[in-house]
C-alpha cells in the first residue's frame, strides 16, 4: 500500500517533495530502527489478521406449518485502502406471524436490503478502490430499508415484517432495526446484552411503567408491533453503529428463539459449544425443546484476530 502510494506520487510528479522528506528523515531520524520495528510489529496484528466467522440455524418450529422467517449471512473480506477489511452482512426478518403474507414480506425485505447494500459495495468487493465511499454506513442502511419498505408495499401491501440487519465493516457494526427480532452481544464471561430495542406494544408499555416485566411475559398482546417494515407511511428504523465485541459474539435472532429460551440457556448453548455451527444447532434445538411455538432463526458472528 505504501509502496503503491509512493509509486503513484512519483508518477504524478510529487517526486521532489517525497524524496526531500525521505532525505530529511535520513538526516534527522528521531526514531531508531528498533523503535520503528516495534511500532510496526505492534500494529500489524491488529490491522491485518482480523476476520469474521459466522454460522446460522433455522427451523420452522414444532407448531407451525410455514416458515415466515428469512435469514441472510454473508461473510467475506474487502480490499480496502488499509489492507483487507472484514466485511459481513447478517439479516433476520420475521414476517408478521399469522398474517397472510408474512413470508412474502420477510423474503422481500432480505432480498431488497441485501441487494441494495451489495450493489453499493460491489466496486469495493470486486475491484480495488482506494477512495472510501462518500455515503456513510448509516445512510446506506437507511436507503436500503426505505427501498425494502417500498418493495413490500408493492409486493405484499398490508403485510409487514421485522428486520434486524447488521453490516460489519472492519470493527464497526452498523445495525438497522425495525420490530421485535433482536441483536445481542454475548461475552465469553457469560454476559448477554441486547443491543436493539423491540418496537412492540408490550415493550413500550413496560418502558412506560404501565406493566411490570412479569406482566409483560404473560401479556396477551405480546405480538403486536408498533413499527414494522411495510407498515405506515413514514418508517423510522433504528440505525446505529457500534464496535464489535472482542472477545464476544454478535447474535441476531427472531422471537422464536429469544421469546422461548431463557437468556442463561442462550449463553450456555453458545459458550459450551465447540464451534459456531454447533452453537447454532444447540440454540435451535433449545427453542424446539421448549415447544417450538414459532419459527426459529439465528445468526452467530465472531470477529477474530
Amino acid at each position: 500500500m505504501n509502496k503503491l502510494f509512493r509509486w503513484l506520487s512519483r508518477l504524478f510528479g510529487n517526486n521532489q517533495s517525497s524524496s526531500a522528506t525521505t532525505q530529511e528523515i535520513a538526516n534527522t531520524a528521531p526514531l531508531t530502527e528498533q523503535q520503528i520495528q516495534s511500532i510496526v510489529t505492534n500494529q500489524n496484528p491488529r490491522f491485518d489478521l482480523q476476520q469474521l466467522v459466522s454460522a446460522c440455524g433455522q427451523s420452522v418450529g414444532k407448531q407451525r406449518d410455514l416458515n415466515e422467517d428469512s435469514l441472510l449471512a454473508i461473510t467475506t473480506t474487502m480490499a480496502g485502502n488499509s489492507g483487507n477489511l472484514p466485511f459481513g452482512l447478517y439479516i433476520v426478518a420475521d414476517g408478521m406471524g399469522g398474517h397472510q403474507f408474512g413470508e412474502v414480506a420477510s423474503n422481500a425485505a432480505i432480498r431488497t436490503v441485501a441487494g441494495y447494500i451489495l450493489r453499493k459495495f460491489h466496486p469495493y468487493l470486486f475491484h480495488v478502490k482506494t477512495d472510501t465511499m462518500e455515503e456513510s454506513f448509516q445512510e446506506i442502511m437507511q436507503a436500503a430499508v426505505t427501498d425494502a419498505q417500498r418493495a413490500i408495499q408493492r409486493e405484499a401491501p398490508g403485510s409487514g415484517t421485522t428486520l434486524t440487519a447488521a453490516l460489519v465493516i472492519g470493527q464497526q457494526i452498523t445495525v438497522a432495526h425495525v420490530g421485535d427480532s433482536r441483536a445481542y452481544f454475548i461475552y465469553p464471561d457469560g454476559r448477554i446484552e441486547p443491543i436493539t430495542r423491540d418496537h412492540s406494544l408490550v415493550k413500550r408499555l413496560e418502558e412506560l411503567g404501565h406493566i411490570t416485566p412479569d406482566e409483560a411475559a404473560n401479556y396477551p398482546h405480546r405480538n403486536v408491533l408498533y413499527r414494522a417494515l411495510g407498515q405506515g407511511e413514514i418508517l423510522d428504523p433504528d440505525i446505529f453503529t457500534i464496535g464489535f465485541p472482542q472477545p464476544g459474539y454478535l447474535m441476531i435472532c427472531s422471537d422464536g428463539l429469544w421469546g422461548v429460551v431463557a437468556e442463561q440457556d442462550l449463553i450456555r448453548s453458545i459458550v459450551d459449544a465447540p464451534n459456531l455451527q454447533r452453537a447454532c444447532q444447540n440454540l435451535v434445538s433449545a427453542a424446539n425443546t421448549a415447544g417450538g411455538p414459532d419459527n426459529i432463526s439465528v445468526v452467530l458472528v465472531q470477529l477474530i484476530g
Partner: peptide, 13 residues
Amino acid sequence: YSLDSRNGWVIWR
C-alpha cells in the same frame, strides 16, 4: 462527520 479511525470509512454524516 463520524469516521472509522482504522480505515477512514464514513460511519455517519
